[in-house]
Each structure stands twice: as structure tokens, then as C-alpha cells.
Design a protein around this nucleic acid. Sequence first.
DNA 1: ACCCAACCGGACTCCGGAGTCCGGTTCGCT
DNA 2: AGCGAACCGGACTCCGGAGTCCGGTTGGGT
Lengths: 200, 200
Amino acid sequence: MTLTSEPGPPTSTTTTLRPRRADARRNRERVIQAAAEIFAAKGLEAVIPEIARRAGVGKATVYRSFPSKEHLVAAVATERLEWITTLATDALSDPDPGAAFERVIMAIAERQSGDCAVAGSLAADIHLPELDEARMASHLAIGALIDRGRDAGALRDDATAADVRILITGVAHVLRETRERDPAVWRRFGEMIVDALRRR
Amino acid sequence: MTLTSEPGPPTSTTTTLRPRRADARRNRERVIQAAAEIFAAKGLEAVIPEIARRAGVGKATVYRSFPSKEHLVAAVATERLEWITTLATDALSDPDPGAAFERVIMAIAERQSGDCAVAGSLAADIHLPELDEARMASHLAIGALIDRGRDAGALRDDATAADVRILITGVAHVLRETRERDPAVWRRFGEMIVDALRRR
DNA sequence: ACCCAACCGGACTCCGGAGTCCGGTTCGCT
DNA sequence: AGCGAACCGGACTCCGGAGTCCGGTTGGGT
């Protein structure tokens, strides 16, 4: 977290330039791949040495491509958020707003059962431009989905995208600690979250 | 966590003997008091030096009364769990099982808004006999409450005490991180949790 | 009033994870 | 093939929180 960035050309803050050498590019990909796998299995709190080990490189090589752990997390988390954004945006074209909302929540829940990084991405207290942007996009997409559901009378009058985030990340946090991986369990909590936001 | 206990008389594992000297007893009380306040404000992850500072004693004095941080947490958490147990047990005599369940959840939610240690006690991954016992008691009491609610057709067929724990501690975890202290927010999530478990 | 066990707390060690350094190796351009 | 820049990774530092030690202080029984 000590960047002491030279002024230099205005490079992206979160993504370092693409390495020039082939081996470096290969390693970068391996690290992202390994990080995605480890984060999926253990959550975003997983430890760098383990990611490096799985990628078959040293710790310093990780830090070469990603100036801090946060940058690495952001690289993985951004993808997950974009997935959510797409999911929610697509659901906006569903004629039944209530069913659309339910389908989105269930899809997130189901994916979360095999990938801790999904909810982690919504929860992470990391603020890098790229990630903030992706988070905002997913927030808006879910917000739009909720607005439709509410207007259609399917959801609570005061339901918000923040509620979705809080319920999902909250449950995810507990379930991750107990290493719960059964998709059925996650589907069940998905139902409960939908019910929590449904109009009574 | 390195107890190296002399054989000696079979003392309780979690509660150290009452100190012989008056000042030591006074300090012990101060530490518990301070711990309760700090844990309430910042959650069970709060740091020992801060508790010592608020109690007006040194770190070592804390460790004199409580062999490890877990023991101190357990001392505070046990009380909270006993409060929950009483709450749930009392509610069993309510003629309307659905309303009783709702009242208990709302009471927990409301108290939680001003005391992070409540949900923390349900969530803590600490296993000391005294605490495990209190946790089990609260679990059984809530379980009984839920059984009644389910039999009366007010709650989901598959609702369990574990669900209550997961939903409450999950939401609590997120709300604590955002330093949310508004009781109204907590009441609202209390409603949602009740709805999540209600029969549709 | 005396005395010593019990207690106090500042300063220490220990540990684990984030981030850095540098001597050795490899890529890829010529 | 040759060579310098780019890259590699083992071993380091740094940091913060848990738990321990020991020289000085205090309580309370006689």
C-alpha cells in the first residue's frame, strides 16, 4: 500500500501495464487463474503465498503484476461484479419483474455455493477506481431490477439494492466460515432472501 | 491458549478462581465491564490493549483474570446468550407462536443495534465448556420456539434454529462493518429475517 | 507496624501475513 | 551467438496483535 508513484504517464491505477516478456505474461495469467481458484474456495481473505504456490511462482512475482493484494483481489472481484451486472441487466427484459428478481437472486446464490468470491466481491472493503466502478454498475443494475419489482408490487416498498447486498454478503460470510458448499443449502437461503424482500 | 495447568484442584476451565485480594477483584470487574462496553461498540474482534486501557489497567492484568482473549470473550458472550435463552424461553408461553417468534427476533435485532456482542456471541468460533453450554441452551430455546411456530403453520416447514443464527449473525456482521447503529435499520432487518422464515 | 504473598503493568517475545530486495536466470532483439 | 534489460523467487523487513516476564508496589493477616 506504499505506492509512492512517480508522476510519469497516467497509467491505470489498478492494472499494471501488460508485461513485455512472454514468461511474465504467462505468469500473470497463472497468478490470476490461481487467485480466482483460491479466492473461490477460501474467500478473498486467502493468503498470497498460497496463491503464489498454486500459480507455481514466488510471492514477489505476484507483487510484480499486482502492486498490492488489493489489486489482485480487484482483478478477480471485478469479473464477478460484471457477471452480476450482466445477470441483472438481462433480467430487466423479463416481463415478470418479481420472477426476474427471484431468478437473479437464485442465480447468485447458486453460483456463490461454488465460488466464495462472488459475495466477497460485493462485500470487499477495497476502493480502487476499477473495482468501485464495477461495484457501482452492479449496484445500479440490481437497483433497477428492484425498482421494477417494487413498482410491480412484488417487493417491499422500501427494498433497495443495498438490502440485497447486505443479505447476500451476510449469509455468505457465515456459510463460508462453516465451509458450506452444498448448492441446495444455498438455494434455500436464496429463497429466504427473496422472501425477506417480498411484499407481504 | 498455553494453559500448562498444574494438576492441583479441578478448577473450572473457563473461569479462574475469584482473586483473594480486593484490588484484584476490583480490577477483574473493571475488565469485564470495559470488555462488555468495547465488545458492544466494536464487536468481539476488539483488541485487548483497548479494553485494558478503558479498564484503567495494563494488558497483563487482563490476562491475569482471563488466561486468553477467548476466556474474556466467553465471559461476556455467555451473558448475552443467557439473555437470549431467557427471552426465547419466556416467549414459549405466548399463546400465539408466530407473534412470539416475531417478538423474539425483533427484541434481538433491537438490542443488537446497540450491542455488537449479541450477534457476536452467536457467531463466535470459540469453544470453551461454559460458552458451548450457553450456546447450546440458546439454540435449544430458539429451536423450541421455532418448532411451535412451524407446527402452528406460521413458519417455513424446514425452519431451524440454525437458520435464525445464520441470518442474524450474517446481517449483524455486515452492519457492524458499516458501523450502523440506527435501531430503525435493525428493526427493518429484523422484519426481513422474520419474513425470510415465515411460511409463504 | 511489619512482612510477604499476591498483584500490578511496562516492556518484552512470538507469530503470521503484507510487501521489498537483490543475486542469479532467461528472454528476445540484433 | 551475444548481451542487456526484464524477470524470477528465496529471504528479508515491517507491522500489529496475542500472550509472557519481572522488578516494583500494595493488601491484609498477625
